[in-house]
Design a binder for these strands. Sequence first.
DNA 1: TATATTATATAACGCATGTTATATAATATA
DNA 2: TATATTATATAACATGCGTTATATAATATA
Lengths: 199, 199
Amino acid sequence: MLFKDGDILGPKTKFTREQIIDAAFDIANSEGIDSITMRKIAEKMGSSVAPIYVNFKNVDELNEALIEKIISISRQLLLEENTGNPFRDIGMASLRFAMEYSVIFRDMVIKSGKYMQGYDEKIMPTLIEEMQKDPELRGFTIDELKTILLKIRIFQFGLSMMAANGLLPKDYSKQDMMDILSSTADDVIMSAKIRKGLR
Amino acid sequence: MLFKDGDILGPKTKFTREQIIDAAFDIANSEGIDSITMRKIAEKMGSSVAPIYVNFKNVDELNEALIEKIISISRQLLLEENTGNPFRDIGMASLRFAMEYSVIFRDMVIKSGKYMQGYDEKIMPTLIEEMQKDPELRGFTIDELKTILLKIRIFQFGLSMMAANGLLPKDYSKQDMMDILSSTADDVIMSAKIRKGLR
DNA sequence: TATATTATATAACGCATGTTATATAATATA
DNA sequence: TATATTATATAACATGCGTTATATAATATA
Protein backbone atom coordinates (compact mmCIF):
# COMPACT_ATOMS: atom_id res chain seq x y z
CA MET A 1 0.00 0.00 0.00
CA LEU A 2 1.60 3.24 -1.14
CA PHE A 3 -0.69 5.63 0.74
CA LYS A 4 -2.17 5.60 4.21
CA ASP A 5 -5.87 5.12 4.80
CA GLY A 6 -7.80 8.34 4.63
CA ASP A 7 -5.58 9.96 2.07
CA ILE A 8 -7.44 11.81 -0.62
CA LEU A 9 -5.81 12.00 -3.98
CA GLY A 10 -6.82 13.63 -7.22
CA PRO A 11 -8.35 17.04 -7.89
CA LYS A 12 -10.59 18.75 -5.36
CA THR A 13 -14.25 17.91 -5.52
CA LYS A 14 -16.23 20.64 -7.24
CA PHE A 15 -19.70 19.07 -7.18
CA THR A 16 -20.92 17.45 -3.99
CA ARG A 17 -23.63 14.90 -3.43
CA GLU A 18 -25.72 17.60 -1.78
CA GLN A 19 -25.38 19.99 -4.71
CA ILE A 20 -26.59 17.25 -7.00
CA ILE A 21 -29.60 16.49 -4.82
CA ASP A 22 -30.38 20.21 -4.53
CA ALA A 23 -30.26 20.62 -8.29
CA ALA A 24 -32.57 17.63 -8.71
CA PHE A 25 -34.90 19.08 -6.09
CA ASP A 26 -35.06 22.41 -7.91
CA ILE A 27 -35.96 20.71 -11.17
CA ALA A 28 -38.54 18.53 -9.43
CA ASN A 29 -40.17 21.54 -7.80
CA SER A 30 -40.36 23.60 -10.96
CA GLU A 31 -41.00 21.01 -13.67
CA GLY A 32 -42.04 17.87 -11.79
CA ILE A 33 -40.18 14.80 -10.62
CA ASP A 34 -40.51 13.06 -13.97
CA SER A 35 -38.79 15.95 -15.69
CA ILE A 36 -35.53 15.29 -13.90
CA THR A 37 -32.79 14.08 -16.23
CA MET A 38 -29.10 13.53 -15.63
CA ARG A 39 -28.22 16.10 -18.25
CA LYS A 40 -30.54 18.72 -16.76
CA ILE A 41 -29.01 18.27 -13.34
CA ALA A 42 -25.55 18.59 -14.84
CA GLU A 43 -26.52 21.71 -16.77
CA LYS A 44 -28.00 23.25 -13.62
CA MET A 45 -24.70 22.66 -11.80
CA GLY A 46 -22.57 23.74 -14.75
CA SER A 47 -20.96 20.34 -14.98
CA SER A 48 -21.13 17.20 -17.05
CA VAL A 49 -22.99 14.09 -15.93
CA ALA A 50 -19.77 12.53 -14.62
CA PRO A 51 -19.97 13.90 -11.04
CA ILE A 52 -23.47 12.48 -10.75
CA TYR A 53 -22.33 8.98 -11.55
CA VAL A 54 -19.48 9.25 -9.07
CA ASN A 55 -21.98 10.03 -6.29
CA PHE A 56 -24.83 7.78 -7.39
CA LYS A 57 -24.80 4.34 -8.93
CA ASN A 58 -27.74 5.15 -11.19
CA VAL A 59 -30.89 7.23 -11.46
CA ASP A 60 -32.78 5.03 -8.99
CA GLU A 61 -30.25 5.70 -6.27
CA LEU A 62 -30.47 9.43 -6.97
CA ASN A 63 -34.26 9.31 -6.76
CA GLU A 64 -34.00 7.55 -3.42
CA ALA A 65 -31.80 10.36 -2.11
CA LEU A 66 -34.23 12.92 -3.50
CA ILE A 67 -37.17 11.26 -1.73
CA GLU A 68 -35.13 11.33 1.48
CA LYS A 69 -34.59 15.05 1.10
CA ILE A 70 -38.28 15.63 0.45
CA ILE A 71 -39.22 13.65 3.54
CA SER A 72 -36.67 15.53 5.60
CA ILE A 73 -38.12 18.84 4.44
CA SER A 74 -41.63 17.78 5.33
CA ARG A 75 -40.37 16.69 8.75
CA GLN A 76 -38.74 20.09 9.18
CA LEU A 77 -42.00 21.83 8.35
CA LEU A 78 -43.74 19.70 10.97
CA LEU A 79 -41.15 20.63 13.60
CA GLU A 80 -41.72 24.30 12.85
CA GLU A 81 -45.43 23.94 13.61
CA ASN A 82 -45.16 23.32 17.30
CA THR A 83 -48.27 24.23 19.22
CA GLY A 84 -48.25 20.92 21.05
CA ASN A 85 -51.44 19.90 19.27
CA PRO A 86 -50.17 17.25 16.81
CA PHE A 87 -53.60 17.12 15.28
CA ARG A 88 -53.44 20.74 14.17
CA ASP A 89 -49.69 20.72 13.57
CA ILE A 90 -49.78 17.90 11.04
CA GLY A 91 -52.58 19.59 9.13
CA MET A 92 -50.77 22.90 9.00
CA ALA A 93 -47.45 21.33 8.05
CA SER A 94 -49.06 19.41 5.22
CA LEU A 95 -50.80 22.54 4.06
CA ARG A 96 -47.54 24.49 4.09
CA PHE A 97 -45.78 21.75 2.15
CA ALA A 98 -48.56 21.68 -0.43
CA MET A 99 -48.30 25.43 -0.91
CA GLU A 100 -44.54 25.92 -0.77
CA TYR A 101 -43.61 22.86 -2.82
CA SER A 102 -46.80 22.36 -4.78
CA VAL A 103 -45.36 20.52 -7.77
CA ILE A 104 -43.49 18.06 -5.59
CA PHE A 105 -46.50 17.61 -3.34
CA ARG A 106 -48.63 16.62 -6.32
CA ASP A 107 -46.02 14.20 -7.58
CA MET A 108 -45.44 12.67 -4.16
CA VAL A 109 -49.11 11.95 -3.64
CA ILE A 110 -49.18 10.09 -6.90
CA LYS A 111 -45.81 8.40 -6.91
CA SER A 112 -45.67 7.10 -3.40
CA GLY A 113 -49.21 6.19 -2.44
CA LYS A 114 -47.84 3.14 -0.72
CA TYR A 115 -45.35 5.10 1.31
CA MET A 116 -47.93 7.65 2.41
CA GLN A 117 -50.32 4.89 3.36
CA GLY A 118 -47.69 3.29 5.58
CA TYR A 119 -46.84 6.68 7.06
CA ASP A 120 -50.46 7.37 7.87
CA GLU A 121 -50.92 4.02 9.52
CA LYS A 122 -47.94 4.77 11.74
CA ILE A 123 -49.10 8.14 13.03
CA MET A 124 -52.79 7.26 13.38
CA PRO A 125 -52.41 5.55 16.79
CA THR A 126 -50.35 8.45 18.09
CA LEU A 127 -52.98 10.93 17.00
CA ILE A 128 -55.77 8.88 18.55
CA GLU A 129 -53.84 8.86 21.83
CA GLU A 130 -53.47 12.62 21.68
CA MET A 131 -57.17 12.99 21.02
CA GLN A 132 -57.99 10.89 24.06
CA LYS A 133 -56.05 13.35 26.22
CA ASP A 134 -57.91 16.33 24.81
CA PRO A 135 -60.62 17.52 27.23
CA GLU A 136 -62.59 18.85 24.24
CA LEU A 137 -62.96 15.26 23.02
CA ARG A 138 -63.91 13.58 26.25
CA GLY A 139 -66.73 11.06 26.10
CA PHE A 140 -66.08 9.60 22.66
CA THR A 141 -65.33 5.94 21.98
CA ILE A 142 -62.19 5.08 20.07
CA ASP A 143 -64.22 4.31 16.96
CA GLU A 144 -65.88 7.70 17.16
CA LEU A 145 -62.50 9.38 17.54
CA LYS A 146 -61.23 7.46 14.52
CA THR A 147 -64.14 8.70 12.44
CA ILE A 148 -63.55 12.29 13.54
CA LEU A 149 -59.87 11.99 12.72
CA LEU A 150 -60.56 10.44 9.33
CA LYS A 151 -63.00 13.19 8.41
CA ILE A 152 -60.53 15.90 9.31
CA ARG A 153 -57.69 14.16 7.51
CA ILE A 154 -59.78 13.77 4.36
CA PHE A 155 -60.64 17.47 4.45
CA GLN A 156 -57.06 18.49 5.09
CA PHE A 157 -55.85 16.29 2.25
CA GLY A 158 -58.43 17.70 -0.12
CA LEU A 159 -57.53 21.24 0.87
CA SER A 160 -53.81 20.61 0.39
CA MET A 161 -54.36 18.94 -2.96
CA MET A 162 -56.66 21.68 -4.22
CA ALA A 163 -54.16 24.30 -3.12
CA ALA A 164 -51.33 22.47 -4.87
CA ASN A 165 -53.36 22.27 -8.07
CA GLY A 166 -54.70 25.80 -8.08
CA LEU A 167 -58.30 24.63 -7.65
CA LEU A 168 -59.23 26.98 -4.84
CA PRO A 169 -60.97 30.32 -5.44
CA LYS A 170 -58.74 33.09 -6.68
CA ASP A 171 -56.98 35.15 -4.02
CA TYR A 172 -57.63 32.46 -1.46
CA SER A 173 -54.94 33.20 1.12
CA LYS A 174 -52.97 30.94 3.36
CA GLN A 175 -54.90 32.37 6.29
CA ASP A 176 -58.18 31.54 4.54
CA MET A 177 -57.01 27.96 4.20
CA MET A 178 -55.98 27.63 7.82
CA ASP A 179 -59.29 29.19 8.83
CA ILE A 180 -61.45 26.87 6.76
CA LEU A 181 -59.46 23.88 7.98
CA SER A 182 -59.98 24.66 11.64
CA SER A 183 -63.56 25.74 11.04
CA THR A 184 -64.42 22.44 9.38
CA ALA A 185 -62.64 20.52 12.12
CA ASP A 186 -64.88 22.36 14.57
CA ASP A 187 -67.92 21.46 12.48
CA VAL A 188 -67.05 17.77 12.59
CA ILE A 189 -66.39 17.71 16.32
CA MET A 190 -69.40 19.84 17.23
CA SER A 191 -71.72 17.63 15.17
CA ALA A 192 -70.28 14.48 16.72
CA LYS A 193 -71.00 15.89 20.16
CA ILE A 194 -74.54 16.79 19.25
CA ARG A 195 -75.20 13.35 17.81
CA LYS A 196 -73.96 11.83 21.02
CA GLY A 197 -76.04 14.19 23.11
CA LEU A 198 -72.96 15.76 24.66
CA ARG A 199 -74.29 19.24 24.23
CA MET B 1 -63.16 12.46 -62.32
CA LEU B 2 -63.17 8.70 -62.61
CA PHE B 3 -65.30 7.92 -59.55
CA LYS B 4 -68.40 9.51 -58.09
CA ASP B 5 -68.30 11.42 -54.84
CA GLY B 6 -68.71 9.20 -51.81
CA ASP B 7 -67.06 6.18 -53.34
CA ILE B 8 -64.81 4.29 -51.00
CA LEU B 9 -61.87 2.51 -52.47
CA GLY B 10 -59.13 0.41 -50.98
CA PRO B 11 -59.17 -2.36 -48.40
CA LYS B 12 -61.76 -2.43 -45.63
CA THR B 13 -60.87 -0.55 -42.46
CA LYS B 14 -59.72 -2.92 -39.73
CA PHE B 15 -58.91 -0.36 -37.02
CA THR B 16 -61.35 2.43 -36.33
CA ARG B 17 -60.85 5.76 -34.65
CA GLU B 18 -62.86 4.48 -31.70
CA GLN B 19 -60.75 1.35 -31.30
CA ILE B 20 -57.67 3.53 -31.17
CA ILE B 21 -59.15 5.81 -28.52
CA ASP B 22 -60.31 2.82 -26.52
CA ALA B 23 -56.85 1.27 -26.61
CA ALA B 24 -55.34 4.57 -25.49
CA PHE B 25 -57.92 4.79 -22.71
CA ASP B 26 -57.06 1.29 -21.48
CA ILE B 27 -53.37 2.14 -21.32
CA ALA B 28 -54.11 5.44 -19.58
CA ASN B 29 -56.24 3.74 -16.97
CA SER B 30 -53.75 0.98 -16.21
CA GLU B 31 -50.40 2.72 -16.57
CA GLY B 32 -51.21 6.43 -16.60
CA ILE B 33 -51.75 8.97 -19.34
CA ASP B 34 -48.05 9.66 -19.74
CA SER B 35 -47.41 5.99 -20.45
CA ILE B 36 -49.38 6.10 -23.68
CA THR B 37 -47.20 5.65 -26.75
CA MET B 38 -48.11 5.14 -30.37
CA ARG B 39 -46.40 1.77 -30.40
CA LYS B 40 -48.21 0.57 -27.27
CA ILE B 41 -51.57 1.51 -28.74
CA ALA B 42 -50.68 -0.33 -31.94
CA GLU B 43 -49.53 -3.39 -30.01
CA LYS B 44 -52.75 -3.38 -27.99
CA MET B 45 -54.77 -3.38 -31.21
CA GLY B 46 -52.53 -5.90 -32.94
CA SER B 47 -51.63 -3.41 -35.63
CA SER B 48 -48.80 -1.15 -36.62
CA VAL B 49 -48.79 2.58 -35.92
CA ALA B 50 -50.04 3.31 -39.43
CA PRO B 51 -53.79 3.22 -38.65
CA ILE B 52 -53.24 5.70 -35.84
CA TYR B 53 -51.68 8.26 -38.16
CA VAL B 54 -54.50 7.84 -40.66
CA ASN B 55 -57.04 8.74 -37.95
CA PHE B 56 -55.01 11.36 -36.10
CA LYS B 57 -52.63 13.98 -37.37
CA ASN B 58 -50.29 13.52 -34.40
CA VAL B 59 -50.17 12.58 -30.74
CA ASP B 60 -51.68 15.89 -29.63
CA GLU B 61 -54.80 15.29 -31.69
CA LEU B 62 -55.09 11.80 -30.21
CA ASN B 63 -54.73 13.19 -26.70
CA GLU B 64 -57.50 15.67 -27.43
CA ALA B 65 -59.80 12.84 -28.47
CA LEU B 66 -58.84 10.90 -25.34
CA ILE B 67 -59.68 13.85 -23.09
CA GLU B 68 -63.01 14.11 -24.87
CA LYS B 69 -63.74 10.47 -24.12
CA ILE B 70 -62.77 10.94 -20.49
CA ILE B 71 -65.06 13.95 -20.17
CA SER B 72 -67.87 12.08 -21.85
CA ILE B 73 -67.48 9.19 -19.40
CA SER B 74 -67.56 11.53 -16.43
CA ARG B 75 -70.68 13.17 -17.85
CA GLN B 76 -72.26 9.73 -18.23
CA LEU B 77 -71.51 8.92 -14.60
CA LEU B 78 -73.15 12.18 -13.58
CA LEU B 79 -76.27 11.36 -15.61
CA GLU B 80 -76.52 7.99 -13.89
CA GLU B 81 -76.63 9.69 -10.48
CA ASN B 82 -79.97 11.34 -10.81
CA THR B 83 -81.65 12.06 -7.51
CA GLY B 84 -82.41 15.61 -8.58
CA ASN B 85 -80.01 16.91 -5.94
CA PRO B 86 -77.11 18.14 -8.09
CA PHE B 87 -75.17 18.81 -4.95
CA ARG B 88 -75.16 15.16 -3.96
CA ASP B 89 -75.08 13.86 -7.53
CA ILE B 90 -71.87 15.65 -8.46
CA GLY B 91 -70.17 14.37 -5.35
CA MET B 92 -71.21 10.80 -5.98
CA ALA B 93 -70.32 10.92 -9.66
CA SER B 94 -66.88 12.28 -8.87
CA LEU B 95 -66.43 9.59 -6.25
CA ARG B 96 -67.42 6.87 -8.69
CA PHE B 97 -65.05 8.22 -11.32
CA ALA B 98 -62.21 8.32 -8.81
CA MET B 99 -62.85 4.71 -7.84
CA GLU B 100 -63.59 3.18 -11.22
CA TYR B 101 -60.93 5.05 -13.17
CA SER B 102 -58.49 5.88 -10.40
CA VAL B 103 -55.32 6.21 -12.47
CA ILE B 104 -56.98 8.52 -14.97
CA PHE B 105 -58.60 10.52 -12.18
CA ARG B 106 -55.21 11.17 -10.60
CA ASP B 107 -53.70 12.18 -13.92
CA MET B 108 -56.60 14.43 -14.84
CA VAL B 109 -56.42 16.32 -11.58
CA ILE B 110 -52.78 17.05 -12.21
CA LYS B 111 -52.71 17.55 -15.95
CA SER B 112 -55.72 19.75 -16.35
CA GLY B 113 -55.79 21.94 -13.30
CA LYS B 114 -56.75 24.80 -15.55
CA TYR B 115 -59.58 22.89 -17.17
CA MET B 116 -60.98 21.73 -13.84
CA GLN B 117 -60.75 25.23 -12.42
CA GLY B 118 -62.75 26.59 -15.33
CA TYR B 119 -65.24 23.77 -14.99
CA ASP B 120 -65.73 24.47 -11.30
CA GLU B 121 -66.27 28.14 -11.89
CA LYS B 122 -68.99 27.27 -14.39
CA ILE B 123 -71.02 24.97 -12.15
CA MET B 124 -70.59 26.92 -8.94
CA PRO B 125 -73.38 29.43 -9.69
CA THR B 126 -75.72 26.61 -10.69
CA LEU B 127 -75.05 24.80 -7.44
CA ILE B 128 -75.58 27.93 -5.40
CA GLU B 129 -78.93 28.43 -7.11
CA GLU B 130 -79.92 24.86 -6.30
CA MET B 131 -78.90 25.40 -2.70
CA GLN B 132 -81.07 28.48 -2.48
CA LYS B 133 -84.08 26.38 -3.46
CA ASP B 134 -83.35 23.78 -0.79
CA PRO B 135 -85.63 24.25 2.23
CA GLU B 136 -82.93 22.69 4.43
CA LEU B 137 -80.68 25.64 3.58
CA ARG B 138 -83.14 28.47 4.05
CA GLY B 139 -81.92 31.50 5.95
CA PHE B 140 -78.31 31.57 4.75
CA THR B 141 -76.72 34.42 2.86
CA ILE B 142 -75.05 33.71 -0.47
CA ASP B 143 -71.63 34.01 1.11
CA GLU B 144 -72.57 31.50 3.76
CA LEU B 145 -73.86 29.12 1.11
CA LYS B 146 -70.60 29.54 -0.79
CA THR B 147 -68.61 28.62 2.28
CA ILE B 148 -70.76 25.54 2.89
CA LEU B 149 -70.37 24.49 -0.73
CA LEU B 150 -66.63 25.02 -0.68
CA LYS B 151 -66.23 22.95 2.47
CA ILE B 152 -68.18 20.07 1.02
CA ARG B 153 -66.34 20.26 -2.29
CA ILE B 154 -62.98 20.21 -0.54
CA PHE B 155 -64.03 17.16 1.45
CA GLN B 156 -65.40 15.40 -1.59
CA PHE B 157 -62.23 16.14 -3.54
CA GLY B 158 -60.05 14.86 -0.72
CA LEU B 159 -62.14 11.73 -0.42
CA SER B 160 -61.99 11.06 -4.16
CA MET B 161 -58.27 11.68 -4.28
CA MET B 162 -57.55 9.47 -1.30
CA ALA B 163 -59.69 6.72 -2.77
CA ALA B 164 -57.87 7.01 -6.10
CA ASN B 165 -54.51 6.77 -4.36
CA GLY B 166 -55.33 3.96 -1.97
CA LEU B 167 -54.94 6.20 1.08
CA LEU B 168 -58.16 5.24 2.83
CA PRO B 169 -58.31 2.52 5.51
CA LYS B 170 -58.21 -1.02 4.23
CA ASP B 171 -61.57 -2.56 3.33
CA TYR B 172 -63.14 0.87 3.17
CA SER B 173 -66.14 0.23 0.94
CA LYS B 174 -67.87 2.40 -1.58
CA GLN B 175 -70.81 2.58 0.82
CA ASP B 176 -68.48 3.74 3.59
CA MET B 177 -67.28 6.54 1.34
CA MET B 178 -70.75 7.66 0.39
CA ASP B 179 -71.74 7.56 4.05
CA ILE B 180 -68.82 9.62 5.29
CA LEU B 181 -69.37 12.13 2.50
CA SER B 182 -73.01 12.73 3.36
CA SER B 183 -72.28 12.60 7.06
CA THR B 184 -69.63 15.30 6.77
CA ALA B 185 -71.90 17.38 4.57
CA ASP B 186 -74.47 17.15 7.36
CA ASP B 187 -71.83 18.19 9.89
CA VAL B 188 -70.99 21.29 7.91
CA ILE B 189 -74.59 22.32 7.38
CA MET B 190 -75.67 21.58 10.95
CA SER B 191 -72.79 23.59 12.37
CA ALA B 192 -73.52 26.49 10.08
CA LYS B 193 -77.11 26.52 11.31
CA ILE B 194 -76.06 26.44 14.93
CA ARG B 195 -73.60 29.30 14.41
CA LYS B 196 -76.38 31.31 12.86
CA GLY B 197 -78.79 30.43 15.66
CA LEU B 198 -81.12 28.63 13.29
CA ARG B 199 -81.57 25.70 15.62
C1' DT C 1 -59.46 -8.09 -65.81
C1' DA C 2 -56.88 -3.87 -65.13
C1' DT C 3 -56.49 0.27 -62.49
C1' DA C 4 -56.92 3.78 -59.14
C1' DT C 5 -57.30 4.27 -54.37
C1' DT C 6 -56.41 3.43 -49.71
C1' DA C 7 -55.58 0.67 -45.23
C1' DT C 8 -51.87 -1.35 -43.27
C1' DA C 9 -46.93 -2.92 -42.39
C1' DT C 10 -42.14 -2.07 -42.25
C1' DA C 11 -38.28 0.41 -41.62
C1' DA C 12 -35.93 4.38 -41.04
C1' DC C 13 -35.07 9.25 -39.31
C1' DG C 14 -34.05 12.55 -35.66
C1' DC C 15 -34.17 13.29 -30.93
C1' DA C 16 -33.78 12.58 -25.86
C1' DT C 17 -32.79 9.49 -22.49
C1' DG C 18 -29.65 6.55 -19.01
C1' DT C 19 -25.34 4.72 -18.98
C1' DT C 20 -20.50 3.82 -19.90
C1' DA C 21 -15.81 3.97 -22.02
C1' DT C 22 -12.20 6.92 -22.60
C1' DA C 23 -9.51 11.03 -22.20
C1' DT C 24 -7.96 14.98 -19.48
C1' DA C 25 -6.46 17.43 -15.74
C1' DA C 26 -5.61 18.26 -10.88
C1' DT C 27 -3.62 16.82 -6.52
C1' DA C 28 -0.95 14.51 -2.60
C1' DT C 29 2.75 11.71 -1.75
C1' DA C 30 7.17 9.23 -2.74
C1' DT D 1 9.86 16.13 -9.94
C1' DA D 2 7.48 11.90 -11.09
C1' DT D 3 3.62 9.01 -10.14
C1' DA D 4 -0.56 7.18 -8.55
C1' DT D 5 -5.14 8.52 -7.88
C1' DT D 6 -9.32 10.64 -8.83
C1' DA D 7 -12.76 14.44 -10.32
C1' DT D 8 -14.45 15.90 -14.38
C1' DA D 9 -15.39 16.28 -19.52
C1' DT D 10 -16.41 14.27 -23.82
C1' DA D 11 -18.30 11.23 -26.75
C1' DA D 12 -20.39 7.17 -27.81
C1' DC D 13 -23.77 3.30 -26.97
C1' DA D 14 -28.34 1.27 -26.78
C1' DT D 15 -33.08 2.17 -26.15
C1' DG D 16 -37.55 4.23 -26.78
C1' DC D 17 -39.99 7.94 -28.52
C1' DG D 18 -42.93 10.61 -32.40
C1' DT D 19 -43.02 10.78 -37.03
C1' DT D 20 -42.57 9.78 -41.92
C1' DA D 21 -41.19 7.54 -46.37
C1' DT D 22 -41.91 3.56 -48.75
C1' DA D 23 -43.78 -0.85 -49.86
C1' DT D 24 -47.62 -4.11 -49.85
C1' DA D 25 -52.06 -5.67 -50.28
C1' DA D 26 -57.02 -5.23 -50.63
C1' DT D 27 -61.04 -3.28 -52.84
C1' DA D 28 -64.53 -0.93 -56.06
C1' DT D 29 -65.09 0.60 -60.45
C1' DA D 30 -64.07 1.07 -65.49
